[in-house]
Simulated assay, not measured.
Amino acid sequence: MYPAPPPQAYHSYGVAAVPSPVPPANCQPMHPPPHGGLTRWSTGLFHCLDDPGNCVITCLCPCITFGQIADIVDRGSCSCVEGGMAYGLLCLTGLACLYSCFYRSKMRGQYDLEDGPVPDCLVHFCCETCALCQEYRELKSRGFDLGIGWNANMDRQKRGVMGNIVVGAPAIPGGMIR
């Protein structure tokens, strides 16, 4: 058999990708970043007392917290009410932890969050309310107001409003007045 040809970089010149024997200038060696390039969660799984109000709501009615998380993670395609109702119905069958596990995994992927010592499904199966509280706190620490949903958060971001703080220069009245 013949030896395999060396790997080639592909450059696009507007029409089609053309193989190039020379790697691009920005090509970096394939070394994994330290710690896999993942970021740590802002709080631990059992730090529920960091936000006692959310802890109480999640313990009494986890479908509310889940709906808020789902709205942000799905970027508005699944409303808080829809996500909460689906979660509530799945609670009746005992499959809610699998549904919420899917959102935890999706959230970890979106924000490059490290996985824990146990798989996401096991975290949700054993500690459902703690997992939901941790996800809520993580999104909150990233600047989201989970009470208003994805669309209102994006509207605030477009206007430069972060929580109660207005970002940017103050408005200046037009024209000079003497």
Rank of each mutant, 00 (worst) to 15 (best):
L38Q: 01
H31E: 04
P5D: 12
L92V: 11
A86F: 13
L60V: 15
G149E: 06
V161H: 06
L98H: 06
I69D: 01
S141E: 02
P32I: 03
G116Y: 04
H11L: 14
A86Y: 12
C78Y: 14
Q157D: 09
Y13F: 15
Y87P: 00
P3S: 12
Q8D: 05
L139A: 01
M162Q: 10
M154A: 11
C130I: 04
S100P: 00
G163S: 04
P52N: 06
R156P: 05
A9T: 15
R142I: 02
N164A: 12
C127Q: 03
P33R: 08
M176V: 14
G149P: 00
F144I: 02
V167N: 07
R178V: 15
I64K: 03
A131Y: 00
L92D: 02
F125R: 10
Q28W: 13
N151Q: 14
C63N: 09
V18A: 06
S20E: 07
L92N: 03
C101R: 01
V81L: 12
M162G: 04
A86K: 12
K140A: 11
W150Y: 15
M1D: 10
E82H: 13
L89D: 04
A16T: 13
A70C: 10
E114Q: 11
L38Y: 01
D112H: 15
G168M: 07
Q110T: 03
G163D: 05
P52G: 03
R159S: 08
G116H: 04
C80I: 06
K158P: 03
D120G: 13
L45A: 03
H11D: 07
C61M: 13
V166F: 10
I177D: 06
M162D: 07
Y87M: 07
P29W: 02
C97D: 02
L89R: 10
A70P: 03
I148V: 15
A96D: 07
G67T: 08
Y111W: 13
Y13W: 12
P33D: 06
L49Q: 08
R159T: 07
G109F: 00
S77V: 15
G168T: 08
V18L: 07
P34I: 00
N153I: 08
W41Q: 00
R159P: 07
M1A: 14
Y136A: 02
A25W: 07
P119R: 03
I57L: 14
P24M: 08
P19F: 10
T93Y: 06
C78V: 15
A16L: 12
D112K: 12
V15P: 07
T39Q: 12
H124M: 11
G149N: 04
K106N: 05
L98G: 11
G88V: 05
C55M: 14
G147W: 10
T58K: 02
R108W: 01
P6H: 08
C48H: 08
K140V: 13
G160D: 04
G76E: 05
Y13K: 05
L113D: 00
A96P: 00
G84Y: 06
E135V: 02
A16F: 15
Y103L: 02
M176L: 14
A17L: 14
L95I: 12
G174C: 12
H11S: 11
A25N: 05
S12K: 05
D145I: 09
P7M: 09
L113C: 00
C97G: 01
E114A: 10
M1L: 11
D145Q: 08
K140R: 13
